[in-house]
Simulated assay, not measured.
Amino acid sequence: MKVAIGCDHGAYSYKEEIKAMLKEEGYEVEDCGTYSTESCDYPDYAYAVAQKIVNKEADRGILICGTGIGISIAANKVKGIRCGLCADSTMARLTREHNDANILAMGQRTMGIEVCKDTVNTFLTTDFSHGPRHERRIQKIKEIEDKQ
């Protein structure tokens, strides 16, 4: 599985730790930035990761900023993206099973690194349930996108 990962300056250290973990676990990782703690704008990195997903250059995405809120909002502006802001592995499991989320967002200021790592592992190893009610709801999301 290929994973695109991105962050802003406020989450650079977590991105680096998670990237290293993913490589150790055998994932192919594409780092979409940022590459330092120098102040930057999270929408740039949300868009870069989202484009990797919609262009089928990556299977899943991971985004991290201070809280995960801003970067998830930005990612969800891209047609075809379902970015779930998750604070733990239960949320990650449910966003995959119920929403078929293709990007995980988290916050460095709101989560410990071990919780983040566990959340990432759950997100990457959980499949979409394909339950009829979930498929129906995802279809409705797509219809909303098509109206824009």
Rank of each mutant, 00 (worst) to 15 (best):
V3E: 02
I5S: 14
I5T: 07
C7I: 07
C7Y: 02
D8T: 04
H9G: 02
G10I: 00
Y12W: 12
Y12V: 03
Y12T: 06
Y12P: 02
Y14I: 05
Y14D: 10
E16C: 09
I18Q: 01
A20Y: 01
E25Y: 03
Y27H: 13
E30H: 02
C32Q: 12
G33N: 03
T34I: 03
T34F: 01
T37E: 07
E38T: 11
S39E: 08
D41C: 05
D41E: 07
Y42N: 00
Y42C: 04
P43G: 07
D44H: 11
A46R: 01
A46Y: 11
Y47I: 08
A48V: 08
V49F: 05
A50Q: 01
A50L: 01
Q51C: 13
Q51R: 14
Q51A: 02
K52D: 09
I53F: 00
V54F: 03
V54I: 09
V54Y: 04
N55Y: 03
N55D: 14
K56R: 05
A58T: 03
A58H: 03
I62D: 00
L63R: 02
I64L: 13
C65A: 09
C65Q: 01
G66I: 03
T67A: 08
T67G: 08
I69V: 06
I69M: 08
S72W: 13
I73T: 00
A74D: 10
A74S: 15
A75E: 09
K77V: 08
K77L: 06
G80A: 00
G80W: 02
G80N: 05
C83W: 09
G84V: 08
G84R: 06
G84M: 14
A87T: 14
D88H: 12
S89N: 09
S89P: 04
T90C: 04
M91Q: 15
M91D: 04
A92P: 07
R93M: 15
L94H: 06
R96E: 10
R96S: 08
E97M: 13
H98N: 15
H98W: 15
A101M: 01
I103Q: 00
I103N: 00
A105D: 09
A105M: 02
M106A: 07
G107S: 05
R109I: 00
R109A: 08
M111I: 06
M111L: 10
M111T: 08
G112I: 07
I113V: 08
I113R: 02
I113S: 01
V115A: 13
V115R: 11
C116T: 05
D118Q: 14
D118M: 13
T119S: 10
N121R: 15
N121M: 12
N121H: 12
T122M: 15
L124P: 01
L124F: 11
L124I: 09
T125I: 00
T125N: 13
T126Y: 13
D127K: 15
H130D: 00
P132T: 14
P132C: 04
R133C: 15
R133P: 06
H134G: 10
R136T: 10
R137M: 02
R137A: 06
Q139R: 04
Q139K: 12
K140A: 13
I141H: 04
I141P: 02
K142Q: 10
K142S: 06
I144M: 12
D146G: 15
K147N: 12
Q148M: 08
Q148Y: 11
